[in-house]
Design a protein around this nucleic acid. Structure first.
Lengths: 247, 247
DNA sequence: TGTTTTTATTATGTATGACATAATAAAGGT
DNA sequence: ACCTTTATTATGTCATACATAATAAAAACA
């Protein structure tokens, strides 16, 4: 069993310390939350371990169950715990970007943030070349070629086909073997799409295709990371132009 | 005034729809949360607008204040609202990565996620070259040179000086002018540091310095984005070696 | 009259007690 | 030994009351 009394001590300690230098602006729930988080990481609780019941915590920490519940709710939102009826709450490994998902809504983000996210996507795709080359397999190459072969004709009015873009670039993220990166990308995607189609950036002046998807695949098959970075940079040229025109 | 009655309708609607195809596993709070989020983005509420009081919401939606409070708490955690005493809750523009901060704790993340984050940092620094060149100023160059001049001697036992690393690379992120990117980086930093020093990766076999900080500054001053990407890739070579050895 | 101080008012924060609900464990019957 | 039924238990929800801090209103003062 874990010494949850310690949380109480830490809480009190924090209160004293902070009252000396600055006004304590944090609420009770804040303190309980901090205490619990600290405890969870100091004691090395393994995933699956269960923490005390709400009422026990409330008694031990000397606060109401209301406060405990709010604090636990926060931990749950962070993905730190999952609570099941009867069984109580158990530790879980947080899905980092799952948490972000809810906030990652184009309609509620500031323009600056939206533009920032747009840029981050470009940064990622240029910068991930080395991981692509390290981990790409022959099967991946074949799959990419398959995707490219299904590419809709470029002579359409709309700038490019979104679904196809997603398929191709999504596959690239997959090849990196970095699950975190891939999840991150799938979060960024809707925002990227939104920015691309909104009036946030200047309209695309000229629409030249530089390095094509097919060209990128060829580089990935026979070339070097350096060549791929340059190829990707060229491939994304239209986006860069729009961004830099707005600067 | 906004029609918060609509939330009630949507809630009921959702319940009905979902009960037809699958068992409704979501809790009351989930529904209220969804309803509120949907409403906030459908009606285009500007930042600073205030939403109804807890009791009003409770009455309108026909649920207890407890449920409303939990739902509002979630919105607050997402950075969607801020609540002040007396004034009620007001809409705010969410600080995307501020939310992540709490979960971004090395001790509670899985090894795979930690490694993924380590890699993402490398991707970012290689990929951001174009934005550096687009937005760098003479003052920035001077500041970088100043940082480099304070570089501690490399012939130390410990691989490199963390503070100096942070100063230099942090400044680079700053130059990109992308606040979101910079915040993201400052979140990644502790994780990166943790992974670097933990036994998660193989020990550094040979410690050669490839392109130095000074070299990077020189490229940024007189070179091209392409050269910078290659320079940065070389600069980070030691990290890449460790990663790929573990593959 | 204009400015400061004091006093309400109000909405969130916290506490408490009760009941509902679902998952598990225990008891019982075949 | 297996299945069904009945407790048990911990979270989910509700209701009410009071504390607290921020604001607005009123009062006092110059």
């Amino acid at each position: 069993m874990y010494n949850f009394e310690q949380v109480r001590y830490n809480m009190t300690n924090t209160i004293i310390n902070e009252s000396l230098k600055s006004i304590d602006t944090s609420s009770l729930v804040d303190k309980v939350e901090d205490g619990l988080v600290r405890l969870l990481q100091e004691k090395k609780l393994k995933v699956g371990d269960s923490i005390p019941k709400e009422v026990e915590l409330a008694e031990t920490l000397g606060v109401s169950r209301t406060v405990i519940r709010e604090a636990l709710l926060r931990l749950r939102m962070m993905g730190l715990i999952e609570s099941k009826k009867k069984k109580g709450a158990v530790i879980t490994s947080p899905d980092l970007f799952g948490i972000l998902g809810k906030s990652m809504n184009p309609h509620i983000l500031s323009q600056e943030t939206l533009k920032g996210i747009f840029e981050i996507r470009l940064v990622l795709e240029i910068g991930m070349a080395d991981f692509l080359f390290q981990r790409v397999t022959k099967a991946d190459i074949e799959e990419l070629k398959e995707i490219v072969s299904n590419e809709p004709p470029v002579a359409q009015f709309h700038l490019f086909n979104i679904d196809h873009e997603i398929a191709f670039h999504g596959k690239l993220y997959e090849i990196t073997g970095n699950e975190t990166l891939k999840k991150f990308q799938s979060l960024l995607l809707p925002v990227f799409d939104y920015v691309h189609n909104s009036g946030l950036l200047k309209q695309q002046s000229k629409l030249k295709t530089f390095v094509s998807h097919g060209g990128l695949v060829e580089i990935l098959e026979k070339g070097t990371p350096e060549e791929f970075r340059n190829g990707m940079r060229s491939h994304l040229e239209n986006h860069f132009v729009r961004l830099f025109e707005s600067d």
